[in-house]
Design a protein around this nucleic acid. Sequence first.
DNA 1: ACAATAAGTACGTACGTACATATTCTTTCA
DNA 2: TGAAAGAATATGTACGTACGTACTTATTGT
Lengths: 193, 193
Amino acid sequence: MARHSNKQALLDAGLRVMFKHGFNGAAVRDVVATAGVPHGSFTNHFPSKEQFGKEVLDQYFDHVQTLVEAALQDRSLNPRARMERYLDLIVERLRADGFERGCLIGDLGIEMTQTSELIRNRLRAVFRQWLKPFAECIAEGQSLGEFSSDFKAQDIAEYFLASWEGAILRMKIERSIAPLNRFRKIFFATVSP
Amino acid sequence: MARHSNKQALLDAGLRVMFKHGFNGAAVRDVVATAGVPHGSFTNHFPSKEQFGKEVLDQYFDHVQTLVEAALQDRSLNPRARMERYLDLIVERLRADGFERGCLIGDLGIEMTQTSELIRNRLRAVFRQWLKPFAECIAEGQSLGEFSSDFKAQDIAEYFLASWEGAILRMKIERSIAPLNRFRKIFFATVSP
DNA sequence: ACAATAAGTACGTACGTACATATTCTTTCA
DNA sequence: TGAAAGAATATGTACGTACGTACTTATTGT
């Protein structure tokens, strides 16, 4: 497969178009035009638009995981600072998009859970995998006294990611960084021991 | 206007169809079929699908506001108990839908902020109005020592509603009440003084 | 009488997908 | 090593359906 195959171009374009118009609003014709590839390539590589969406999600989550690793595996930082670092990385990207785009995981979670079991099940697996390093990080933080031990580390991680998605939602509506900063400030202050 | 005019039937059906398929996935034909009214009624009452979506949102928010008032104006309860009561009322409705439907405000916030300034601006106004009674309730709770005074009441209210939307998002993916309960438990425990 | 609502149909376009064919890449064996 | 065979990818077009909206005429209510 070539370095920049049509399939890869379609996945990249799909991410961009789905970010802007959502899954239902992302027409296959828009995607192939954005990718600059002929129409037939879509049919060749993807049996359906639903499967295409699932693969776009997979690729997006791969990218998210590189950010998670970059932040949470930085042993030069304490657990809490690692999580703040993760938010830094995400905010950097959200700012680059003018706070117009959010998170594809949240976008598909809102739009597709009632119409595609394929994507809903993938999202469930994504969350499970996404949470794991955060739960571990928080558990370590608890043993260092950085996080309250009133709750299970897993529960705090779930609360953290879900609330973060809520903050991004509000960010999209306001097109402002304020909801993100508010979340950071209150979350870290309130989950301290 | 009759008690059950076609316009009202369309708004009701629109809410149902948009809950299931989102705005882009809600075809006008599906809406009129669900409403059991002829096709022309849609054109008569709404200049565009976008305007229709905005009116569906308005009506939905009217309903949300009745729940806010029912809970937050119950002076027999303390501020914190009033907010828990609000969550009770919402959870009751979410459970009735098998945790498949979420909140239309969040749904449109994810799907429409990049494609409809009409709806985005309406959502901004909705949030402003939605927050107000919560900020007042929290301020009262702060004076009673029920909420931490480390943050402005307004900021806690924003954090509360945004994080709640995040919990609903996760609920939709998992089709489970767990994310809602987790939010309640951790939020109220952590924003205590 | 007039305005508002109801109703049916039709238009031009956009949709996801199917399909036939051409080209490129990979594997296999003399 | 090199050519033939087979698989994967590339490409253009066409199909049947669904889309949002416009338009004309009827009915109701004041």
